[in-house]
Amino acid sequence: MERRSFLRGAVVGTSAAAFGFTLWQGAASAAPAQPGAGPYGALGAADANGIQLPSGFTSRVIARSGQKVGSTSYIWHNAPDGGACFADGSGWIYVSNSEISSTGGASAVKFSSTGTITGAYRILSNTNRNCAGGATPWNTWLSCEEVSTGYVYETDPWGVNAAVRRSAMGRFNHEAAAADPVRKVIYLTEDASDGCLYRFVPTTWGNLSSGTLQVLKAGTATSGSFTWGTVPDPDGSPTATRDQVSGAKLFNGGEGCHYANDTVWFTTKGDNRLWQLNLLNSTYELAYDDSLVVGGGAPLTGVDNVTGAASGDLFVAEDGGNMEICVITPDDVVAPFLRINGQSSSEICGPAFSPDGRRLYFSSQRGTSGSSSGGITYEVTGPFRA
């Protein structure tokens, strides 16, 4: 199996943590990741919320669809999906999309320095199936529509400034976004069985109103070199963006996307893979593939959203599988970090760490009911590795 450098490391500064941008230390290891003993030990018995966690970790419910958030008057949205955290003075904000047709949008929950909920409010309304997205270095949330003619909307986590549609970022079945402040681009995944990986190059970094949409070009193998080709018509009509560039590499159901120090990780749910782009040498490879697990019994299936922790660990949420968030360590060990019981008709969405790295937020999109009106948003607190 091809060798690779898995660039991982530590978060520095609360603003870096807010955007999921990390400085990673290099560690040479074989790809793809294989099952092993996780850094946090075995999962314990389910707690009162039905969540199995390692020793020392606890969970609490932050919000439930159709109910008031904490002591606020705000009613939490249905089908909570992708999310991110933003530093807010000594506290922070967690934003969450709503994957509902026509009325989706996104909401936010504000926390004090002690984790107390101090507010909740809407930051985007009346958009279509807002699935995942990504944070920007200038403190905005990119909320992406998961429909064939979907847009990206740039929103204000504080709810002060009106959301803005960013048409130049392309019209396609958007999923996740990840900002690269070094190359000054935004990477975008496409949730289609023959989808592509894109990057948007703004005319001016920090302003997404204009720029160039490009698509990754590569061969059909699971590793190799890549280039970028410009999409002639980002509007995707009459020809879909993924069909406009000869040699564009097709991916089976693009989902989560995470950038850290010259590396992009993104998932494809159709084949249960985590891909890695090495931006310094323009190569790509597999970081995880459930069909390549030695000895069978893959711990991670239904790969979906992905985020990074201060330790260099990646946390990958399952859509299906057995409702786990799995950790992939810098030495390429994959293991369950948590498991939600009694919610087999749901999926785990929106994993994101608080700026201090001590709390992990995520949602069960359909909860125990299996319906979009049954969504539950959680917080897990404990001794995450520094």
Rank of each mutant, 00 (worst) to 15 (best):
S291V: 11
S291L: 14
S291G: 12
L292V: 08
V293K: 13
V293S: 14
G295L: 13
G295Q: 14
G295C: 14
G295P: 12
G295N: 14
G297T: 12
G297Y: 13
G297C: 12
G297E: 13
A298V: 10
P299Q: 11
P299Y: 06
P299K: 08
L300M: 14
L300I: 11
L300N: 05
L300S: 11
T301R: 15
G302L: 09
G302S: 13
G302N: 12
V303K: 07
V303N: 08
V303G: 10
D304C: 09
V306G: 05
T307Q: 05
G308M: 09
G308A: 15
A309S: 15
A310V: 01
S311Y: 06
S311N: 15
G312R: 00
G312W: 00
D313K: 04
D313E: 15
L314N: 03
L314E: 03
F315K: 02
V316R: 00
V316H: 00
V316K: 01
V316L: 11
E318R: 07
D319T: 06
G320D: 11
G320Y: 06
G321H: 03
G321W: 00
N322I: 07
N322L: 06
E324L: 01
E324F: 00
I325K: 00
I325D: 00
C326F: 05
C326Q: 04
I328K: 03
I328E: 00
I328D: 00
T329I: 04
T329E: 01
P330T: 08
D331C: 07
D331H: 06
D331W: 03
D332E: 13
D332G: 04
D332Y: 05
D332R: 14
V333M: 08
V333E: 08
V333T: 15
V334D: 06
V334Y: 05
V334W: 02
A335S: 15
P336I: 04
P336M: 09
F337N: 04
F337S: 06
F337Q: 05
F337H: 05
L338W: 04
L338T: 06
L338I: 08
L338S: 03
R339Y: 03
R339G: 02
I340H: 05
N341H: 08
N341S: 13
Q343A: 12
Q343V: 10
S344R: 10
S344M: 11
S344N: 14
S344L: 12
S344I: 08
